[in-house]
């Protein structure tokens, strides 16, 4: 087992443990902090896949901007720590059973899928995740969606101001 596989397993276990902690922590601020750790683990996975641009964008956009927005809203609306009334136990049990059966069903489907047998993901190599090829593709083939997304951001900004205004 080489260092890359050890890193893959360590990052996966770390991400899953942090994701479970997002669910079971009572305080919403703790949930946000655990979710930031999940995003850092996913960025580590991107770096293992040599998708360096997406790793940096993931840290800047998700762990930086979006999570700060979540923290800001939690501080703004000042929810009491235990004001969240707990659901009944059987609702929680049904939720866990539904998620677990979805997981087992999909895993058994993937195990049977013949087109996936023998396919491997090359780690630590490949150049498609670097900035140079991505920038070339983004500004040659995808320049129209790129410009349209700026219009999307403008409309989102106007909408957020309009909804947030009393």
């Amino acid at each position: 087992m080489n260092i890359v596989e050890i890193l893959f397993y360590a990052l996966s276990v770390f991400a899953i443990v942090c994701a479970i902690m997002v669910l079971i922590s009572k305080n919403p601020i703790h949930s946000v902090l655990w979710l930031i750790l999940v995003f850092f683990a996913i960025s580590g996975h991107y770096i293992l896949l040599n998708a360096q641009f997406l790793a940096i964008v993931n840290i800047i956009v998700y762990a930086g901007a979006i999570m700060v927005l979540f923290l800001f809203v939690i501080m703004l609306i000042n929810v009491k720590k235990d004001s969240e009334p707990q659901k009944q136990l059987f609702v929680k049990l049904i939720g866990v059973i539904a998620g677990g059966s979805f997981l087992t069903l999909s895993i058994s489907l993937v195990k049977q899928a013949m087109p996936l047998v023998g396919k491997t993901v090359p780690l630590k190599e490949g150049t498609i995740g670097l900035i140079h090829p991505l920038g070339k593709a983004l500004f040659n083939d995808y320049v129209v969606p790129f410009e349209i997304s700026s219009v999307l951001f403008l409309s989102a900004m106007v909408g957020a101001v309009l909804i947030g205004k009393k």
Partner: peptide, 9 residues
């Protein structure tokens, strides 16, 4: 699936 369980519970 962890996300699904969170949305449901």
């Amino acid at each position: 699936s962890i996300g699904v369980v969170g949305v449901l519970t």
